[in-house]
Design a protein around this nucleic acid. Structure first.
Lengths: 150, 150
DNA sequence: CTTATATATCGAAATGATTCGATATGACTG
DNA sequence: CAGTCATATCGAATCATTTCGATATATAAG
């Protein structure tokens, strides 16, 4: 007699297990790969279910939003802007002067940082003053330094 | 008589201050911008010096390396790979199955994560098993979630 | 109202990233 | 050694980003 996965109830109805040792319904093609990988279809099913439950926890929308946060910091110039802002609020003019970049470039990058929620803007007359949006930004930079070394 | 910045010693030698109120040597053109910005050349000099000391602290090489770390996480697919790996080691085959992507793509993205120091690889026969390189990776993802909400 | 200054946005060229099929490498299997 | 399976790398098409000059907007000063 064929064995079934131990996670299934022992007294489950004896449905026709023609060639499917694990479950009555045919396995997903991608799970078949894992079945061959594991050598054991029971283990394959368990592994596949585990992977599926993990991927189900990942929300597409959150994923895109969080990736955008990282993308915003992933440019060397924008990272240096964030490092400058650790020391306090600065206007566009000061940032472009300190980092020696054209005004349009500086403004563009600041808009990307703002859209990602990394900096906040405060309008004061004809000046736009930017500051870090959250202490979490500083923490992220610290962690990147740690990863860089380790 | 022209005034000089209060941060300079009162008894400094009376060098020729033809039109330069602050320092004998001509100011950098970019600092001139700040001078007009501040309205006061003394304040401009101080602000410019502060900005310069801040930018001097930023090392070009570190900057590029840290930006690369963020760039590696900045792709939605790679971020979802990292989220999967929070739960433990996985081989390429499992990852491509779980996230439903071609093998070449999966492998390519894993190499990017590895190069950035975010994951580590362990070869075992014909399998390559990947795991998170450091707890700091998980911390980074948590911070991104915080920034996303705040 | 005109001018000057600070910032934002546009547009187009240059550059870089992503994607995936095809192919290569490298290890286990018969 | 031939075949199979897991992974890596290549190549080319597509797509996104970066860059900077030119232009637009908006505020302050004369």
């Amino acid at each position: 007699m064929r064995r079934r996965c131990s996670s299934l109830p022992k007294d489950a109805p004896a449905v026709e297990l023609v060639d499917m040792t694990v479950s009555p319904e045919p396995l997903d093609p991608s799970v078949e790969r894992l079945a061959r990988l594991k050598g054991d279809r029971c283990k394959a099913k368990i592994a596949a279910d585990r992977l599926k439950s993990l991927t189900d926890l990942i929300d597409e929308e959150d994923l895109a939003a969080e990736a955008q946060v990282f993308r915003a910091i992933s440019d060397p110039f924008r990272l240096s802007v964030l490092k400058l802002l650790r020391d306090g609020e600065l206007c566009v003019c000061e940032i472009m002067t300190a980092l020696d970049r054209p005004q349009s470039s500086t403004s563009h990058h600041l808009s990307i940082l703002k859209r990602a929620g990394l900096v906040k803007e405060r309008k004061e007359g004809k000046w736009s003053r930017y500051r870090l949006a959250d202490g979490a930004v500083i923490e992220m930079m610290k962690l990147a330094e740690i990863l860089r070394l380790g």
